[in-house]
């Protein structure tokens, strides 16, 4: 068995204390939120922390509440708890559904949304969907708290924009309004998805026109990426949007830095974006995929 090298676990009582601990131990310390990615990386000596700051013991950080029209999800909420949360199921069902398909049951039982976002594994599902749902994150440190959109949290593959001593404490996701349509789909060959595609549409008239759209792609590129040019093509009448889906798919592919790797060639990934934009569009509108 590959064994972990020695480290010390610290138990902060609040986010501020966690931040102080992080600042104190500097590069020797890491936040321990679920451990699914962190401990794997430590087993392979990709990370060599001597101190783990256990965010899970901080009271209140695993709550999931509706406040001011938004879901407020504590950073240490597990994928499973989000998947099962009546609040999430009711107010943002696309999020609940995506969470129910993250990795496998064991990862969902221990892995946390905050940990997932901070670790920024290129093949993870949540960030891609949160980009289109308009998710934001609350970041706390001794210097105070700030709230940034998920897009600004993402710095690159395995890299977040958290500054030293900063801790992600909360994810805020606006609840779905009756005019919203959203869906997330993935295409999976290996253990981790080959493609993730999230789509959000605002339709005042039951899907006849779309006044606003957000689309993001993940897994095919180093980090989840919005297709801003594609979003313009995805507004207008249903018929027009449907006609422009192929153009929009190319726009998404152009926006993403498509990788040639053993998951597939960039060419194939571009093709998958085409296929899955069609599918996710129909899924978001509740149309049959058969």
């Amino acid at each position: 068995m590959t064994t972990l090298s020695r480290f010390e676990i610290h138990q902060p009582t609040c986010a501020l204390e966690a931040s102080q601990m992080l600042a104190h131990y500097g590069e020797e310390a890491g936040i321990y939120a679920g451990g699914t990615e962190l401990l794997l990386a430590m087993k392979h000596s990709a990370l060599n922390y001597r101190h783990l700051i256990d965010l899970k013991v901080v009271p209140g950080l695993n709550s999931i509440d509706m406040r001011n029209g938004s879901l407020e999800i504590g950073a240490t909420s597990t994928h499973r708890s989000i998947e099962r949360s009546p609040n999430v199921q009711q107010h943002q069902p696309a999020l609940a559904e995506m969470e129910s398909q993250v990795a496998n049951v064991r990862v969902r039982a221990t892995g946390t949304l905050g940990g997932n976002l901070c670790f920024a594994e290129p093949h993870s599902d949540p960030a891609t969907l949160l980009l289109v749902l308009g998710g934001s994150v609350k970041i706390e440190s001794a210097a105070g708290a700030r709230e940034i959109p998920v897009s600004e949290l993402i710095a690159g593959a395995y890299a977040s924009n958290l500054q030293p001593g900063e801790i992600l404490t909360k994810i805020t996701v606006p609840s779905a309004k009756p005019t919203h349509r959203s869906a997330y789909m993935k295409f999976q060959i290996h253990e981790r998805p080959t493609l993730g595609l999230g789509l959000w549409l605002d339709t005042p008239d039951e899907g006849r026109t779309f006044t606003s759209a957000r689309v993001a792609v993940g897994c095919v590129c180093p980090f989840p990426t919005r297709g801003l040019n594609a979003e313009k093509l995805l507004t207008g009448s249903h018929a027009d949007v449907e006609k422009r889906l192929s153009e929009a798919a190319d726009a998404i592919a152009d926006a993403a830095d498509l990788l040639d790797d053993h998951e597939g060639s960039a060419e194939y990934k571009r093709h998958l974006i085409h296929v899955f934009l069609q599918r996710v569009f129909r899924k978001a509108l509740g149309e049959s995929l058969a």
Partner: peptide
């Protein structure tokens, strides 16, 4: 040893974990 295979599955408070 990567949470893929499930052979180390045990239940913690009735939930399966690796």
């Amino acid at each position: 040893e990567a949470q893929v295979c499930g052979s180390c599955t045990v239940l913690v408070d009735d939930l399966p974990v690796s």
